[in-house]
Structures are given as structure tokens and as C-alpha cells.
Design a protein around this nucleic acid. Sequence first.
DNA 1: CAAGTCGTGGATACTATACATCCACGTTAG
DNA 2: CTAACGTGGATGTATAGTATCCACGACTTG
Lengths: 159, 159
Amino acid sequence: MKLSEGVEWGLHCALLLAEAPAGVPLPRRVLAEHYGLPEAYLAKHLQALTRAGLLHATPGPSGGFRLARPAGEITVLDVLDAIEGPASPFVCQEIRQQGTGAARPEECTRPCAIASVMVRAHQAWRESLRAVTLDQLVNRVPQALRKRNRAKLGTDAPS
Amino acid sequence: MKLSEGVEWGLHCALLLAEAPAGVPLPRRVLAEHYGLPEAYLAKHLQALTRAGLLHATPGPSGGFRLARPAGEITVLDVLDAIEGPASPFVCQEIRQQGTGAARPEECTRPCAIASVMVRAHQAWRESLRAVTLDQLVNRVPQALRKRNRAKLGTDAPS
DNA sequence: CAAGTCGTGGATACTATACATCCACGTTAG
DNA sequence: CTAACGTGGATGTATAGTATCCACGACTTG
Ligand code: SF4
Ligand code: SF4
């Protein structure tokens, strides 16, 4: 079980957009260079975040991406769902209905104990991620780093 | 992010062993046929469970697998750790130290906010799975099914 | 209006991991 | 001894994630 590393990219980019002064979109080239990521592939994940309504994309020169809502209204779970999808990592294969010990379909009307335990664990995981918003994360970024980013992006963007 | 379906196999087999009368080992062929699983591949997962100390394997004729401890002392998390490994699905790539916006190593001494949020969520997931033991799951298996299994395995095993 | 910038979305190739099988070997009951 | 059973390594296949490219439409600027 491995989480797509696109989630890490998405969180970092969202965090950077949350740090940036509002209303100034950052082009994907700046985001990609800032973290040393492949621009073309990062574009896919930014599209996913846009489709999910977390980011807003402005085309044309001096365009780019900005947060679609205040950072306090975007949770880590939102980002994860947009990039990784909300599906549970556990997918039941209904093996109890296979083989010599197969259960009859009428005995499998409701989800079995194994599946429901997995569902509950998945929900606990999601709740933990839903409890954290982007601005809470921004506040834990070291001041020196935030200042450097703000200065760099302020001078890079207008070029 | 997808959980190995070997976890489902391991849980079902462990559950079946918990249902079976104690002391009577089930050979892997019986387990595989009972759920219609590839025997050779299932063997890998059973080995993992054995190495983790959850199952006990007896070689030779009339050998097989049995639980190494009472079902009440084996949690779902034990099975998952044995087969899938205890690692977190989120693996930090340290992209904050890459690209034009790279942070200096001395600014990355302790895990950042993103990573720690992920760790907490992973722990919440694990705690949820640790809270459930095999015998709790056995009790939720329909009586009819348990009876059928017990009868079938009682007549199949001695052949 | 023309040109250059930027996001969109599809097609394609590469890579890591999980899935699956096979076989040679050591151990044990009968 | 012999047949049944688990162990462990080597090997091949399938699937999902990673990465790149290109044609297109939208927009801003001059
Ligand atoms: S629903 Fe439960 S019993 Fe059926 S295959 Fe899934 S885990 Fe097994
Ligand atoms: S530790 Fe935090 S900042 Fe560094 S790469 Fe991982 S998620 Fe990003």
C-alpha cells in the first residue's frame, strides 16, 4: 500500500498558494521549479485540484493558479480526495463466495465483519485528515522560509 | 493507494483457523481450495503470517497451519502488519529541499507539518484496526456458515 | 487584430509493485 | 523408506503510477 506522491506535491503547492498574497496567481512553471518537479506531470495533479474546486485556474499571460476558497476552508482530506480519490484502500473481492467453502449469496446481503472493520478504519483515517486545514499548516511553516518564499515569488512572478 | 488483496486472504484464513477446533492444523491446500485462491501464492502470505508469529506451521503428513495464540490475542492489525508491512502509506520525498525554493537542511531538522499530519492519520487508522481481535470477528460470522465450515473441514482434513 | 503566454486534455511510453507460478529442498508421520 | 507438507528462491505477467509530448482553446498585452 503506497500513497501516490502526487498527494505530497498537491499539498506543497496548495500550501505555497496559501502563503502567497491572495489574488496573485502562480503559473505552474513557477510551482514546478520551486519544488523541482516535472512540470508536465504536475499539471495533471493541478488539474485534478481545479476540477475538485480547490484551486482556480486563470489562463492567458500572467495567469496561473490560486486558491478557490480561503485556506481555512480547505482541509488536507480535500486535497487527498482530489488527487488520490476517496476510495477505500481495501477492496473486497468477495472470496467468501468462491471455492469449495462458498457462502450462498443470500448469506452475503450485508457487508461482513472484515469489510466493515476496514471501512471504520478508513473513516478514522479520513476524519484525522479532515481535521486539519491549510492555514493551520501554514502557521507551522518556519518564519524564515515563509519570508524567503514570499520574496522570491513576489519578484519571480512579474518577471 | 490500494491495499494488497493478500490482506483479505490472510484475514479470511486466520478467521477460518479461529473457527476450526484448536490443535487440528489445516494444510494450505485446504485453505486455498476453500476460498478458490492460488495455492502457491497463498503460501507466501501464510509464510509471512508464520514469520510474524501469528500462525504455527507443522510440516509432514497431516500437517498444516494453526493459530499460534488464542484468537482473542490476535488483532486485525497484527495480520495487516505481517502481510502488508507496518510502513506508512505516505512516504515523504523531501521535495522542500529540491528546486529553486529549496529549504536548507538545518531548517528540516524535525518532521514538517504535512508529514506529521500524515503520521497521525496513519496512527488513527492503525488504532482502529488494533481494537478488533479475531474472536470478535468470528462471533459475527453467521451461525449457518460456521456450522457448514466446521463440518466440511472436519471431514476434509482427515481425508 | 496579432502574437505570445498559459491551462486543458488526450495519447503514449516507462517503471515500480503486486500477483502468480514453478521447482529444489528440508522435515515429519506412517 | 516414502509420501505429504511447509520453506524459500528464481522467474514471469499484469496493473497502477510516473513521466513526457503535442494539439487545442482561452486570455492578456501591445
Ligand atoms: S465481504 Fe467480507 S467475507 Fe466477503 S470477501 Fe469481503 S471481506 Fe471476505
Ligand atoms: S517533510 Fe514535509 S516539507 Fe519535507 S518533503 Fe516531506 S512533506 Fe514536504
